[in-house]
């Protein structure tokens, strides 16, 4: 009995470890804003993003398709988010002209830069898919998209060796900033750019793409979240990296703290 009651070295070690863990947890809870605001705290938490991207890329076959749905599941009105009615002067002029003067520029590391009208795009091979749009906020909406597979456009332009990303430059300004660079942009790598469901969509639910949803052309990257689906596209830059573009993180929301790989 006396031996049983004495605190053994192992118990001391156990309680010591427990105490350190409890103190660290309490610090984490009360210092959660400090951790969130510090570079090292964010760096530690971000290690999870690398793990997520690496594992999902390992798991996901290049051609694994996002689930597609039946007509019955299509939402009557597709919820619009982000920019829904851009007021940028160049966009307003194009919109008022029925997008007759709008062109999709394909530039950068390509053999043959392209300038394509909406009719040019509609004359290309088309793909229609009913997919689920997953917003990072948590909601989803099912829509029927029609457009040109991005890989077809890339093949027309001819991708040069060394190209790793497609950067999508958009007509809409989502945030008015002092230096005027609140324009929306996004980027995907060639795993997603060449995916069969990755299309440049000009149609929604059987009609033309509405302004609220990105007219005249938006991206669909069905295995990633909503903010990757750039709207109001004017230009695709094929590039080796995106470090020099805007904030350098590869997208409007990426520059504001969101993950570049938005598979979860």
């Amino acid at each position: 009995m006396p031996a049983d009651n004495s605190i053994s070295r192992r118990s001391l070690f156990g309680f010591g470890l427990f105490g350190v863990g409890a103190a660290a947890t309490a610090l984490g809870i009360f210092g959660r804003d400090a951790v969130s605001g510090s570079a090292s705290g964010v760096g530690l938490l971000d290690s999870a993003e690398n793990a997520t991207r690496t594992v999902q890329r390992l798991l996901l076959d290049r051609t694994a398709l996002a689930p597609e749905f039946s007509e019955a599941e299509v939402a009557p009105t597709f919820r619009a988010n982000g920019s829904t009615d851009p007021t940028d002067a160049d966009y307003v002029a194009l919109r008022d002209g029925g997008f007759k003067d709008w062109r999709l520029e394909v530039a950068g590391l390509v053999d043959k830069p392209l300038s394509l009208s909406l009719d040019d795009l509609k004359a290309m091979p088309q793909r229609t898919q009913i997919t689920r749009h997953d917003c990072v906020e948590g909601w989803s909406c099912v829509g029927k998209w029609t457009g040109v597979p991005l890989s077809h456009v890339l093949d027309l332009a001819g991708v040069k060796p060394g190209a790793r990303y497609c950067v999508f430059r958009c007509l809409d300004t989502l945030e008015q900033t002092a230096d005027g660079n609140g324009k929306y942009y996004e980027s995907v790598d060639f795993v997603d750019a060449r995916h069969p469901q990755t299309i440049l969509a000009h149609g929604l639910n059987g009609g033309p793409l509405p302004v609220a949803n990105g007219a005249p052309l938006r991206l669909r990257v069905e295995r990633q979240l909503g903010y990757k689906q750039a709207k109001y596209i004017k230009r695709i830059e094929v590039a080796a990296d995106f470090a020099g573009v805007e904030g350098g993180k590869g997208g409007f929301w990426e520059d504001r703290g969101y993950e570049w790989y938005a598979g979860i």
């Binding site: 809870i29 959660r32 804003d33 969130s36 605001g37 964010v42 530690l44 938490l45 971000d46 290690s47 999870a48 993003e49 793990a51 997520t52 990072v136 906020e137 929301w253 504001r256 703290g257 969101y258 993950e259 979860i264």
Partner: peptide, 20 residues
Amino acid sequence: TAPSYQDLATGRRWHFFFAW
């Protein structure tokens, strides 16, 4: 909430770090 202020991007960082 973590963080206490409204910040979805940082909330996701915390969530996925501990989810792993």
